[in-house]
Design a protein around this nucleic acid. Sequence first.
DNA 1: ATAGTGACAAATG
DNA 2: TCATTTGCCACTA
Length: 103
Amino acid sequence: MDDRLYFDTINSVVRQIPAGSVMSYGQVANLAGCTARVAGWAMANVSEDDVPWHRVVGSDGYLRIGRRSVALKELQQRLLREEGVTFRTDDRVDMARHQVDGS
DNA sequence: ATAGTGACAAATG
DNA sequence: TCATTTGCCACTA
């Protein structure tokens, strides 16, 4: 796993997300110059502590964490709430308020 | 080299 | 509105 191609680029993009804001995987992917799947792969394999992976959510605002990792999902939700991110009753992020305008 | 998989997303039916 | 398909790119067996 030394290639990391987009790995580093994606990490740097995610690091620039301000606290209290979120980005969709597609948004990160666009800025990093790759596709949404690669962004998801990068988040799934992130191992550095300075990467706020919890600020990356699905384009529809849902916290998508595969393999039914409920604990991880709740962790993400908790971290976001600490930063002032508000959630709707559907357990999804209020994108209109917190999504970063990259374009 | 081929096939299957995945923390995605947009298009279809 | 929900379920399925397709496009996408990297990884693993």
